[in-house]
Simulated scan of single mutants.
Amino acid sequence: MSVKALVFLLCLPAMAWAQGFGGLGTQADGFTTPRPNPVFDFPKDHGPHPDYRIEWWYLTANMTGPDGAEYGLQWTLFRSALAPEIGVGWTSPQIYFGHAAVTTKDAHYVSERFARGGIGQAGVTPAPFEAWIDDWHLKGDDFDTMQMHATGPDFAYDVTLNAQGPLVFHGDGGFSVKSAKGQASYYYSQPFYDLSGTLTLPDGPVSVTGTAWLDREWSSQPLADDQSGWDWFSLSFEDGNKLMGFRLRQTDGTFFASGTWIAPDGTATALRPDDFIASPLALSDVGARDVPTTWRVQVPRFNVDVTTTALNPQSWMAVSLPYWEGPVTVQGSHTGRGYLEMTGYE
């Protein structure tokens, strides 16, 4: 989404950290907040927005090896502002951290990086585009053709991305509402990347091809104070249609849902809160946590009734603020592949 990656809480005040995933519901005093009817300016908006508290460049991919084995890949750079002031060098309040992962049927490899903004260790430039933290990078002459690299203790990947469709804007022209109280983010995606490249795993290199989905999102208070986490889906169907949908879990046991139906040509239709229905079907024991890894997803408006099943139920992101993220397969009224992210189950 994404609406994603609350790891930004690591860089927020102690009160927010103590609130866990609900910490993004804290007040955004001094920071800019999203407003309806946004006007995007590209390529500038592919870059950072330091007057907002949180931001991410978030890519997931579904891939296949020469023997038909399935793989998942994640590359994410997060930016979090400690304060709404502008500074340079070590006085910059911008903090960056990155997550990289590779998922197989039997293993889930994860790595995490941290860096200060302002000193060159991490950052984002819009044109030519480059997002980096240490030696991890996502870069290209423009946003349509890019190279991506990351390494961890037991994995690495080097892949090329080529966009086959347009950017997609979620919500009302990119203004994505996250609660009945009006919290929101600016949110767009590039869900049409073709991918090719190499994974390096403990057993050796693997050539892979597949598709990738990149989410861009920024805000200052994307959750309400009564929301504790989310379940987010990005699904690519074999008929060319795509679906982004999420439900935000509220402390009273209800949900706030939203999503986008994406036609093969990139035409986006915003889903109403009652259009997107996600219901857990089966739980997995993930490190002594009960995590729903099989779901029924319904969008009656578009005749969607599918079951999503995790490629590897143990796709736990064991990072500083942990969450579940991994590839899924889709069966039912539509078939395909996608990604599922679940936060707040720690």
Rank of each mutant, 00 (worst) to 15 (best):
V3K: 01
K4M: 12
K4D: 14
F8M: 03
L12N: 04
L12E: 12
L12G: 01
P13W: 00
W17C: 09
G20R: 13
F31G: 03
N37S: 10
D45V: 00
G47W: 07
P48R: 08
P48S: 13
I54Y: 15
I54F: 15
W56G: 12
W57E: 03
N62G: 15
N62V: 12
G65P: 12
G65K: 12
W75A: 00
L77F: 10
L77C: 07
R79C: 10
A81H: 05
V88Q: 15
W90L: 14
P93Y: 05
I95D: 00
Y96E: 00
F97A: 06
H99T: 13
D106M: 11
H108F: 14
S111I: 04
R113H: 10
G117C: 04
A122F: 03
G123M: 05
P126C: 13
P128F: 04
D134K: 11
L138H: 15
L138D: 13
D144H: 14
H149L: 13
A150G: 13
G152D: 08
G152I: 09
Y157R: 05
V159C: 09
Q164M: 11
L167C: 00
V168L: 02
G174S: 05
V177N: 01
K178Q: 08
S179A: 08
S179R: 04
A184C: 09
S185H: 06
Y188G: 00
S189M: 06
Q190G: 03
F192P: 01
Y193G: 02
G197V: 05
T198M: 00
L201E: 01
V206C: 04
S207C: 05
V208C: 02
V208I: 13
A212E: 03
L214H: 09
L214W: 04
D215I: 07
E217G: 15
W218I: 08
S220Q: 01
P222K: 06
L223Q: 11
D226K: 11
G229M: 14
W230T: 13
F233N: 09
S234D: 07
L235V: 07
K242D: 10
M244Q: 12
G245D: 09
F246M: 14
L248E: 05
A257W: 08
T260L: 10
W261D: 09
I262V: 15
A263K: 14
D265R: 06
L271Y: 04
R272N: 14
D274N: 08
I277S: 01
A278D: 04
A278W: 01
L283K: 09
D285E: 09
V286A: 06
G287E: 08
R289Y: 03
T294Y: 02
W295K: 01
V297L: 14
Q298T: 12
P300V: 12
F302Q: 15
N303C: 01
N303K: 11
V304R: 09
D305F: 10
D305M: 08
D305G: 11
A310L: 09
L311E: 06
N312M: 06
M317V: 09
V319N: 03
S320V: 05
L321I: 08
Y323S: 07
V330D: 01
G332N: 07
G332Y: 07
G336W: 01
G336S: 02
L340V: 13
L340E: 10
L340P: 11
E341N: 08
E341V: 04
G344E: 01
Y345C: 04
E346A: 13
